[in-house]
Design a protein around this nucleic acid. Structure first.
Lengths: 120, 120
DNA sequence: ATCGTGTTCAACCCCTGGGTTGAATGAGGG
DNA sequence: CCCTCATTCAACCCAGGGGTTGAACACGAT
């Protein structure tokens, strides 16, 4: 778990953390406020927040003794970009496949113009 | 790890699996083909595929001895929907915040019309 | 200085995840 | 029928994740 994208996906793989993110879209909150609905210890929630913070999904300021948690929406774009990029490719491929299938009604051999690759 | 959203996020939290998905947008592939670039055993890759399959990201048909792996792009929408939903809320909140800040130049008390919640 | 509240650190437990190797199964091809 | 290739199952190892409890730390209030 080193790159940011891994951290973000991993952070959101946990239902509790997703719920926290969901709640933070409504308003900033403190650790204790966030912990209240779940029946786990405050420390556990603090750990969850650490994960979200290291993923860049959340930031914390200091305000008296409290450390309000604030959602950072920009990181969502990182995921969206990754997802859209490959979904687009996949769909494009299906489009090509349709073309191929359409051609197969008329022509025969249809070689394999195997396309470019891309890593994460 | 029970619900599908968790499985999808969790599946994509692994760089190797993301890379497989990326490569599968170009063309279907067999387990061995997929395993080739990585220096892990074929069994390990087979396990990765199982994870992707259980997340619904991938399907496998049978073609002679081979079991070509095929990307299922629809599941991406599940994530996109979740992400967009909460990003939208977050942005809307910022918009409201701007309004509040603008009002603070003129008025004083500004109560807290705390908004609705939503779970995963 | 002291207390109380909010938050985090530390040590520990247990279970899952990703990796390994070795053997089993499936499905043509000789 | 037997061999070979592709894939999966099984057993195991080790690191890390999520949970716990108990102590420490950081402030504000008294």
């Amino acid at each position: 778990m080193d790159d940011q994208l891994s951290r973000v996906f991993s952070a959101l793989a946990d239902p509790t953390r997703r719920d926290m993110v969901a709640r933070l879209t409504a308003a900033d909150a403190t650790v204790n406020e966030l912990a209240e609905p779940y029946d786990v210890s405050v420390q556990a929630v603090s750990k969850h927040l650490k994960v979200l913070e290291e993923a860049g999904l959340v930031s914390r300021s200091r305000e008296a003794q409290r450390r309000p948690v604030h959602l950072e929406a920009e990181v969502f774009d990182l995921m969206t970009k990754w997802i859209e990029r490959y979904r687009r490719r996949a769909e494009e491929r299906y489009r090509r496949l349709d073309d191929v299938l359409a051609e197969m009604d008329t022509e025969q051999p249809t070689p394999r113009p195997d396309s470019e690759r891309g890593a994460s």
